[in-house]
Design a protein around this nucleic acid. Structure first.
Lengths: 217, 217
DNA sequence: GGATATGAGTGGTCAGACCACTTTCAAAAA
DNA sequence: TTTTTGAAAGTGGTCTGACCACTCATATCC
């Protein structure tokens, strides 16, 4: 009789307890020793359940204080999973493409928002280009991702950026200033269509250059 | 000095070990006692790390046999998470939106591929609608995701689908057959523009209905 | 040769012991 | 009286050692 794992029951018990006791995000949940006693299991079993929930970002533990129901702002789950998922050598192409999916969607979202398009940030990038004061490629794209307002998409994007090699984290060169200006101009004009296509062109160029770098290595 | 949790290090250590030893899905990973000795920590700490990974569906344990690397398809994550996480309106919205980003991108990719658009799968869905033989919403969208050819995007989508509640996993109703037919028709015509907008309309409707369900609960 | 018993190895669970840390609150100092 | 101090209680973090239940390979017996 291969009985189901205790710690999984505990996970459900804790969930039930939380809903019954009306514990809200940020509230403290009973201590490990307390739970062990009321649920009539060993403390280590309780801990296995709690550690699982913690890795999922559902609870938060502070030594000396207790265990708290998380307000699940942090999906650290995604991070852990991705490091596992991406390790089976997914083609670099998929990473670039997927990151681009998020970037294109973000820039289109922004173009639908007038106030976002008229932010001084965009002018500041243009100015830096004019004055030949370089900046990180990532900074510009990150601005777009943040302003899109989708925090989950931003998280995924940040993750993907890590897997895209160092190229994305380096500075813009003279060769690409024109493409970047196209993107910035499209944003100012709130032209979602043009913004998307300009961004695509830039990213495609970046990907090609990035590949060159890889071959050198 | 509030040092970081040991078990989190262990999670990373195990991941490193997996990639270094070239352990593939289905393979056995070292026993708990072995890991405890080589990583120089107590067995209970190892277990906390392993239990976490198990809840994520990354590993699978069989009493008397050992611990095995899973092919990350596990479900129990779904139930636990869906009941816990995402009462937060904003993050729920983000999940839907992000999933849609991937879906729209996938359908556009497909429309650029003639052979994919003329697959008999699409007709089979149409036929089932005509004959009022229902099917799972997820099945149709999953087909789109798979055919897009981006495995990373597919994996992220699968993850997000787990967070999206049960609604996506239920069957299509009469109310939405027209919207679905629009999508299928656009695919057949390889009209990326129309396919994207039709899909958007359907998803928006789904999201609204899903919300109704939540309110009832 | 085939059925059976045994033992080694594995995960599952528990109890108890420290440790490091935080909070609390009463006693001591101002 | 007010402030400071510090001891105690409570918490999570970790380790150890001990069983249990189970699987599997091997040896043993018919």
């Amino acid at each position: 009789m291969n009985q189901p794992k205790r710690y999984l029951d505990i996970v459900l018990d804790i969930r039930k307890m939380i809903s019954q006791e009306k514990i809200r995000p940020g509230d403290r949940i009973p201590s490990e020793r307390e739970l062990a006693e009321t649920l009539k299991v060993g403390r280590s079993t309780i801990r296995e359940a709690l550690r699982s929930l913690e890795l999922l970002g559902l609870i938060e533990t502070r030594r000396g204080e207790g265990t708290f129901l998380s307000d699940h702002r942090n999906h650290q789950l995604v991070e852990v999973l991705s490091t596992f998922i991406l390790q089976d050598n997914q083609s670099q192409k998929d990473v670039w493409e997927t990151r681009m999916i998020h970037e294109i969607s973000a820039i289109q979202t922004i173009c639908g928002n007038e106030s976002a398009c008229q932010l001084p940030v965009w002018d500041s990038f243009s100015k830096r280009i004019e004055e030949e004061e370089s900046f990180l490629r990532e900074d510009l794209v990150k601005e777009i991702m943040v302003l899109s307002g989708n925090r989950l998409s931003l998280k995924i994007w940040l993750l993907l950026a890590q897997y895209s090699g160092n190229f994305y984290k380096s500075r813009v060169t003279m060769d690409e200033t024109e493409m970047i200006e196209d993107v910035l101009a499209a944003i100012r004009q709130q032209d979602a269509e043009k913004a998307a296509s300009s961004l695509k062109i830039w990213i495609a160029w970046l990907q090609k250059e990035s590949k060159k770098d890889d071959d050198d290595t």
